[in-house]
Design a protein around this nucleic acid. Structure first.
Lengths: 349, 349
DNA sequence: AAAAGCGTTGTAAACGATTACAATTGGAAA
DNA sequence: TTTCCAATTGTAATCGTTTACAACGCTTTT
């Protein structure tokens, strides 16, 4: 059964005025009655509420916002939805945002600065009261970030943060964890250790690489030309890099990968080439995904507190919005933990 | 350097009136000039635009909405963000929504009817012009869906659809694909075939189970008490179910799983128990995830057109919103494809 | 009896933009 | 010279709510 008589205009909602005229009183009284204020007669309240229910009245939030000049909405810009990292962060954000009575407008920059800029403007046009952002791997729209902040819209960066802007930031200590992960491989007795690095422009890439290199230097390991290979974020790149190494017969004993997908891609290549992990090549991933535990062998990985990162970032932003004066820009560094599994066990030792 | 002088109020934006008073003309003229209408002097336009730029004027979208009574926003309710399925659907939705000049408000029901209801009300309060929803596995808020539709907010269901409501729906043909997947196992020469089913209340669960059972009946396979085990959506349930079967020594030759995570969980259990896939137990997953290709052995899985599903659903909704009269409620059934990989190859045959 | 107080309600001005309508020009047509 | 029209601008109402202020009727105080 189809509703054929559907008209062009959006169905008209009952307004304050409708209730007022029906009851032959002023809209002011209706407004006050519904807001349950002390200065309105109990009986009037009752009648008004009754009529409101009868007419299925719903306050128009847009009119409300126009009146009190805040949108109770915050904006979010994430680069992509292709791995589970951001969706989980979003869950954390949602939780805090809901509790604080705010709403969330989610946008995706698809890893390009151009779309990111468009999204920022979209959010601004919607009068968000603040923005949470993890920047693209292409680079940053620094000027616009600053413009937004200057115009009164606070920004909190998380995970992939701006290096030039002064603002609250939430990160995990990539350097330290990369250092630990590398040391873990060294202490396990592996010698020839490589690193599959992420997209070059990202701060996290640099930090993890730095951690890797410093750990290698500390323990006087040789760093060759191929010790650090730039791969990227997706599994196919890890796969290709590992294939390339194997075909060149330049086998590392262990590889510390930029993230889990890269590690899993590498793992696939290892198996395809008839080699074994960890026997021939050991692997360590990063930013633990659900898959780490499910593959064979289970993957050693650094488990980022994704959900918590979302929570913390959202809390920082809401503090910026609601507190006066807003708290100083602090950089919160979350700690992660390393889950050591079979993929990095030295079977020969 | 911290901005200490930040005051309580949100930074005041320039309004039409500001420009008008600065130029000593009326707000009406300013409005018209900025809208670039024919009935305003070219020179005036120039001056107004200049002043607007000078004051960094941004039209207040809330006032605009109040004026023309539509929000240009649509709402989305998804159950969870724990697998990549919905994030990818969202990407498809985003694309269409962006192109149509609408905005997207994303919410998560966390698989509970209660949160779903809260989200629907939130969206309604924000005057979304339509809603896209994939229902929770707890069940449906049918009454409220109908209420929304009656009050003029069209709803489009996707993936997990309501059975009782008349509205546009986008699904994949779960029955047919489950049937094919089961037949694939039968034709491969497996005899004792089991099905790990999803959450009981979901329509997709029923459809896939029906497809499985019908295929089994068609080929006169025996269906025992344990042939269909209700597992759920996450990997741990598949893991437990498979462990249980193995420990009871009730080994199926092949299992058609509700989805990839369940299959991967089952795979883990198989390996842990010293068995081999597909040699001892073959597996077929559903709703292909990135992981299917990366695990060992690669997993046979039905690849749902997730991105496309988002696109189609969004398009249907926008048609409901913008067309007059709105098109009849149609159910679009997307076709999926089966990727046959090593996990379901009969090595003994 | 006048003043002050209380409880309750209405009036009207905001919020920022849009737009029908009226009003003001000046020049062209009569 | 008067009339009319076009071009341009201003006035004011509108969208749905909130809220300062005024106003009303009654009781209580002085």
């Amino acid at each position: 059964m189809q509703n054929v008589s559907n008209t062009a205009v959006m169905k008209k909602y009952a307004t304050l005025k409708d209730i007022a005229t029906a009851l032959k009183i002023s809209t002011a009284t209706v407004s006050r009655a519904l807001a349950d204020r002390w200065d309105v007669n109990a009986e009037t309240k009752r009648i008004v509420c009754e009529e409101a229910k009868r007419q299925n009245y719903k306050p128009n939030p847009i009119a409300k916002r126009l009146q009190n000049r805040h949108s109770k909405t915050i904006g979010l810009v994430v680069p992509e939805f292709k791995t589970l990292f951001f969706p989980i962060v979003i869950s954390g954000i949602q939780k805090v945002v809901d509790e604080a009575g705010f709403q969330l407008l989610i946008t995706q920059s698809q890893e390009t600065m151009e779309v990111e800029l468009r999204n920022l403007k979209l959010l601004e046009n919607n009068m968000v009261e603040g923005i949470l952002i993890s920047i693209t791997r292409e680079g940053e729209n620094s000027d616009y970030y600053q413009e937004l902040i200057d115009s009164g819209i606070p920004i909190v960066f998380f995970n992939r943060v701006s290096s030039s802007i002064v603002a609250p930031k939430v990160i995990i200590d990539d350097y330290k964890l990369a250092f630990f992960a590398t040391e873990h491989l060294i202490y396990s007795g592996f010698n020839k250790i490589y690193h599959f690095a992420g997209p070059e422009k990202l701060a996290v890439t640099k930090e993890r690489k730095r951690g890797f290199l410093d750990a290698m230097k500390k323990h006087q390991r040789e760093i060759s030309e191929n010790s650090v290979l730039t791969t990227g974020v997706y599994s196919d790149k890890g796969y290709e890099a590992m294939k390339m190494l194997i075909q060149k017969n330049e086998l590392p004993q262990a590889v510390f990968c930029f993230n889990d997908p890269t590690a899993l891609g590498a793992l696939k290549a290892i198996k395809e080439e008839g080699l074994k992990c960890p026997d021939d090549i050991a692997l360590v991933g990063f930013s633990e995904t659900e898959m780490a535990q499910l593959v064979d062998p289970p993957l050693t990985s650094v488990q980022q507190p994704s959900f918590e990162m979302g929570e913390v970032a959202a809390r920082l932003l809401i503090a910026q919005i609601t507190q006066n004066p807003p708290p100083d820009a602090e950089t919160v560094c979350l700690t992660a933990k390393m889950n050591i599994r079979k993929s990095s066990i030295n079977v020969k030792k």
